[in-house]
Design a protein around this nucleic acid. Structure first.
Lengths: 99, 99
DNA sequence: ATTTCATATGATATAGTTTTCATATGTTAT
DNA sequence: ATAACATATGAAAACTATATCATATGAAAT
């Protein structure tokens, strides 16, 4: 397994705002304005962070007029969250030292 | 799936030094001095980062005299790295925008 | 009991990331 | 062509994480 720079992938997910974006996209694609509403975050903040997420294909964009619709790459993200959930359940009663 | 604070788990892995530690433990348990050699990093840096890793059970410690032997929780880490590897192969030719 | 070795810890300095604010770009409607 | 709207972008400010250095702790050997 070659993984010399895989930690960069985790950096992308390891952020509160980006994680909220991911959660908001769990139920289906949304445009930027809708993501702002769902996350209660500012537009430019969301845009900056969407760029990071799409930069490594954690989310996908497509244009629709003046809207940009973002969708989650569930194939990678969902199993990854399932692994974390299992880890927390198995190894950490309560909060695992996680803040 | 409840995942409100799961991003903290990713923060733990999303770091160059800690990732090097994880890699060094891939082949089996090591004590702190051995991890320093394997990673070519300073002892106190390693200790600080080992604390973060063990804080959420990504690694496990046991004492042996004055040595402390760390081992990797492969059950969570390995499948997670496999997911990233697959992601990179599938969605990113070259480097995926990852640094 | 003292020295030596292995590791941990605390405080500060340093580096890096994230947000913010102002503005730019691109699209549709008028 | 201009206005209105949605989103993106750049630069600076604000924030957070990390490394470093000095020192502390604990265990074994002398």
């Amino acid at each position: 397994m070659k993984c010399k720079s895989y930690y960069h992938f985790f950096e992308v997910i390891a952020n509160k705002t980006r994680f909220k974006i991911i959660e908001s996209l769990m139920c289906g694609p949304l445009n930027v304005g809708q993501i702002c509403l769902a996350t209660k975050e500012e537009q430019s903040k969301i845009s900056h962070n969407l760029k990071v997420l799409s930069g490594c294909n954690v989310v996908d964009v497509k244009k629709d007029g003046k809207l940009r619709i973002y969708s989650l790459n569930k194939e990678t993200v969902e199993p990854m969250l399932r692994l974390v959930e299992k880890h927390v359940q198995t190894y950490c009663e309560g909060n695992c030292g996680l803040k």
